[in-house]
């Protein structure tokens, strides 16, 4: 059969109307995302202070290994990530399971209350937390009144307790956010599956472990990846609680705060800051890959 006109293969891909529709978004993404990403990659190979920079090859990467402050920030961030993410996701799962129980009194109220922290003003909550966790704050007061501690806990000045405080704060703020994902996924599970399990003699605990959790796997993976990214980029709480210092003595300094300080607080070192930011990128990519790999479908 003779072909009278070529098929739309080429024209389909270069259909001008389609490109016109996506052009504004593409333009903005190009200018505000792709360009800065590529430029920061270029910058990460620049050395020097302020505006006098020159190409330094891998000098910044070598500098990372010899920079005790970077090592400290990296280890702090890792500690926050390793301890906080599992605790938060576990809590979110438990709270979601509890709030999914139709017999629970005041369900809507608790759902709202637990979700509220993540939409609360960051500055307001930081100020409140600082006051609550001050040496003479309500938390110490309550713990002392309950005879759990004999002397006030130095929440903001002790290296260990300062980390605990940051973990408490971000857990308080983001548990509700993750809980909503779990809750909505749980509500999508066909109720008759649970009824079948009840008839099969599976206990409530068994139903949670062997039905709910496996069925939430895609959502758990999603929250794991987003929480990992969030914690590796941790900045706000540390900045607000420690006046941007990451104190005491860099014990709460995170990679993001270090990047900020390198860029805007110390004598600006844009190249080196860009290199540190790429450390975060590599960590996120690596951890996300590991999480996807660990939770892959095995069939």
């Amino acid at each position: 059969m003779a072909v009278l006109q070529a098929g739309g293969g080429v024209r389909r891909y270069y259909n001008i109307n389609g490109w016109l529709f996506v052009a504004p978004a593409l333009g903005l993404i190009g200018v505000f995302m792709v360009y800065p990403i590529l430029w920061s990659l270029w910058m990460s190979f620049q050395t020097g202070k302020g505006l006098t920079t020159k190409f330094g090859g891998f000098a910044n990467i070598i500098r990372l290994w010899n920079d005790p402050v970077f090592i400290k920030a990296l280890s702090n961030t890792t500690i926050f990530f390793v301890i906080q993410v599992p605790i938060m996701l576990f809590l979110a799962l438990i709270v979601a399971a509890a709030l999914n129980n139709p017999k629970l009194w005041g369900r809507s109220f608790f759902r709202t209350a637990i979700f509220l922290p993540c939409v609360t003003s960051l500055v307001a909550y930081s100020v409140l937390f600082k006051s609550m966790f001050a040496a003479d704050g309500v938390v110490n007061g309550a713990l002392q009144a309950l005879h759990i501690i004999s002397s006030p806990i130095p929440w903001l000045t002790d290296p260990f307790w300062a980390k605990v405080l940051i973990i408490i704060a971000i857990t308080w703020r983001w548990t509700g956010y993750n809980m909503i994902f779990y809750l909505s996924a749980m509500q999508n599970i066909d109720k008759s599956i649970y009824e079948a399990a009840r008839i099969d003699g599976i206990s409530a605990r068994g139903r949670f472990l062997y039905i709910t959790i496996p069925m939430l796997k895609p959502v758990i993976l999603f929250t794991m990846v987003t929480s990992t990214i969030g914690t590796l980029q941790l900045f706000d709480e540390v900045y607000n609680f420690t006046e941007g210092k990451g104190g005491p003595s860099n014990e709460t300094l995170t990679l993001s705060l270090y990047i900020y300080n390198l860029t805007f607080k110390f004598m600006p070192s844009f190249g080196y800051a860009a290199t540190v930011s790429y450390v975060i990128v590599v960590m996120v990519a690596l951890l996300a890959f590991l999480q996807f790999y660990a939770t892959r479908e095995r069939d």
């Binding site: 066909d190 008759s192 599956i193 079948a196 399990a197 008839i199 062997y210 039905i211 496996p214 069925m215």
Partner: peptide, 11 residues
């Protein structure tokens, strides 16, 4: 019991 929606454990 056998349910209308089968209620099989999908995983």
């Amino acid at each position: 019991m056998v349910f209308q929606s089968y209620a099989l454990y999908p995983h």
